[in-house]
């Protein structure tokens, strides 16, 4: 009885073939889709223009072969989803340890906004994703257009004092020559970065201080470059007095201040030397 039941029968085979054909007709393309995963390392977005850095991964692997990234903000506060303005082409900063894409997005009002990210790979594959960001009414740190806080950040010029005020190893003395207060009074553009090289071990935040060192060398005597350590006592998770004064609870943060002491760029997360250079070239 059993062998007869499973005996080859053309009619049954025909049925299975028909089933498979109809199933494959209903399924998407056979090309392996991109395992798109992304990190958006920003938490304090405000109403108005915001810098949105995006790190892209294919599964767990960092995506480097990307030809274009387009960002479109959509309004979720209406019945049917509506695009806000036109799509923005993100700029790639592959000179950073972890290549990232910067998109400048406009968030019109307080609340949640949808973001559609379209990613085009060099091999022709593409993927898109939808996620939300929150535009806050206010944030605690200085924003673009506000006056920078004249803090008495610590300075040092010998190895013993440097080791006391920064976790960078080896520290670059060029980043600790002038306090924020004196830098703002100098009339020159100033870059102030809050980062913790020793304790921020992920590849997308620690290299910010390396970008600072390169900029300090390239813009010597034209721009003040200052690094402020995040923690006063890491074991107790006590933040430095300047961090608290600037209203920062996360890191890394970099502020670019013009010669008049006004914040012209407020940059959270990764920051490549090229991105910082492009900003400063507009100021000097």
């Amino acid at each position: 009885m059993i062998p007869t039941l499973f005996r080859f029968q053309p009619r049954i085979l025909y049925f299975y073939v028909l089933l498979l054909v109809s199933l494959s007709a209903c399924t998407p393309s056979t090309q392996a889709p991109l395992a798109l995963q992304a990190v958006v390392p920003v938490s304090d977005l405000v109403v108005g223009k915001n810098r949105l850095p995006i790190l892209l991964y294919d599964g767990e692997t960092l995506l480097r072969e990307v030809s274009a990234v387009q960002i479109q903000v959509v309004n979720l506060q209406v019945q049917s989803v509506q695009a806000v303005g036109s799509a923005v082409n993100a700029v790639n900063y592959s000179d950073y340890a972890v290549p990232y894409w910067r998109a400048d997005v406009e968030l019109p009002s307080v609340g949640y906004w949808g973001v559609q990210a379209s990613v085009q790979l060099m091999d022709g594959r593409s993927a898109s994703a939808e996620f939300v960001v929150e535009a806050k009414a206010s944030v605690t740190m200085p924003t673009v257009g506000t006056v920078a806080i004249a803090s008495d950040s610590p300075t040092a010029d010998n190895p013993t004092d440097l080791a006391r005020i920064t976790s960078a190893y080896p520290p670059d003395p060029a980043l600790y020559q002038i306090s924020i207060r004196d830098a703002l009074a100098s009339g020159k553009p100033t870059v102030i970065s809050f980062a913790t090289p020793a304790y921020c071990q992920t590849s997308y935040c620690a290299p910010v201080v390396e970008s600072l060192s390169a900029i300090a060398k390239a813009f010597a005597n034209k721009v003040n470059v200052i690094h402020v350590e995040v923690y006063r006592d890491y074991a107790k998770q006590e933040k430095s007095a300047v961090m608290l004064e600037w209203g920062l609870s996360t890191e890394p943060w970099t502020f670019v201040v013009d010669g008049q002491g006004t914040v012209v760029e407020s940059l959270q997360g990764p920051l490549s030397e090229r991105e910082l250079r492009e900003i400063l070239e507009r100021l000097v």
Binding site: L36, A38, V39, V42, S43, V133, S249, T250, E251
Partner: peptide, 12 residues
């Protein structure tokens, strides 16, 4: 440590 981080992934 109090840091807020966002990320996303896709599936079909």
């Amino acid at each position: 440590d109090g840091h807020v981080l966002t990320g996303f992934t896709t599936f079909h």
